[in-house]
Amino acid sequence: MDVFMKGLSKAKEGVVAAAEKTKQGVAEAAGKTKEGVLYVGSKTKEGVVHGVATVAEKTKEQVTNVGGAVVTGVTAVAQKTVEGAGSIAAATGFVKKDQLGKNEEGAPQEGILEDMPVDPDNEAYEMPSEEGYQDYEPEA
């Protein structure tokens, strides 16, 4: 019985440690998101679009440190934060509304985080759909 109880105690310690790591990862992701939003706020009209992409990228980098179902929630929060940063930029006159959601080359930025393969159960990952990809044929 002692062996059984000791095993359960060790398992509990492992769960607590994993929860603490997840909590730490979420806190880091939130900190990076805040950094990115402050970065966007300090940019001029020309830099705002690039700044919004930076927020998304920093958040995406930190999301990889967070495991399990938390990833889905962090990704949703990050996307809403990026959308909010863009709205703030438009409201303050840093950028025109028609410039939001495009990178410096004018290509749409939507789907940055949505296409990231995420499995809350950590069982399997699927690649994003290939609808947006084109076949590449090298020139002879």
Results as ranks from 00 to 15, higher is better:
residue 65 N to S: 10
residue 75 T to V: 14
residue 116 M to E: 13
residue 100 L to Q: 09
residue 107 A to N: 09
residue 12 K to F: 15
residue 76 A to T: 14
residue 1 M to N: 00
residue 114 E to S: 11
residue 76 A to V: 11
residue 59 T to Q: 01
residue 11 A to S: 02
residue 106 G to L: 05
residue 106 G to E: 07
residue 5 M to C: 01
residue 15 V to W: 08
residue 10 K to W: 06
residue 51 G to W: 15
residue 78 A to Q: 03
residue 62 Q to C: 08
residue 8 L to F: 02
residue 64 T to A: 09
residue 41 G to W: 08
residue 2 D to G: 00
residue 64 T to I: 14
residue 79 Q to Y: 04
residue 51 G to F: 11
residue 87 S to V: 14
residue 93 G to D: 05
residue 27 A to W: 10
residue 11 A to R: 00
residue 12 K to R: 13
residue 44 T to N: 01
residue 20 E to H: 14
residue 119 D to N: 06
residue 25 G to P: 00
residue 104 E to S: 06
residue 73 G to E: 04
residue 64 T to Y: 13
residue 138 P to H: 05
residue 123 E to Y: 11
residue 36 G to V: 11
residue 122 N to A: 04
residue 112 I to E: 05
residue 12 K to C: 13
residue 128 P to T: 06
residue 136 Y to S: 14
residue 100 L to K: 04
residue 21 K to L: 12
residue 32 K to C: 03
residue 61 E to I: 05
residue 127 M to P: 04
residue 26 V to R: 00
residue 134 Q to K: 13
residue 133 Y to I: 02
residue 86 G to K: 09
residue 64 T to C: 11
residue 135 D to N: 13
residue 118 V to Q: 02
residue 134 Q to F: 05
residue 29 A to I: 15
residue 61 E to G: 06
residue 35 E to L: 10
residue 3 V to P: 00
residue 57 E to V: 04
residue 88 I to P: 02
residue 4 F to Y: 01
residue 94 F to Y: 12
residue 94 F to Q: 06
residue 2 D to F: 06
residue 67 G to V: 10
residue 114 E to V: 12
residue 37 V to Y: 08
residue 30 A to W: 08
residue 41 G to M: 13
residue 123 E to S: 10
residue 89 A to G: 07
residue 120 P to F: 06
residue 126 E to W: 03
residue 79 Q to E: 04
residue 46 E to R: 05
residue 55 V to Q: 01
residue 103 N to H: 07
residue 104 E to L: 08
residue 49 V to N: 03
residue 96 K to P: 05
residue 106 G to H: 08
residue 86 G to P: 06
residue 75 T to M: 09
residue 128 P to F: 02
residue 73 G to T: 14
residue 59 T to K: 01
residue 45 K to S: 07
residue 55 V to P: 01
residue 57 E to F: 05
residue 118 V to C: 13
residue 137 E to Q: 05
residue 32 K to L: 14
residue 68 G to T: 13
residue 22 T to A: 14
residue 109 Q to T: 10
residue 63 V to M: 14
residue 22 T to Y: 05
residue 94 F to E: 02
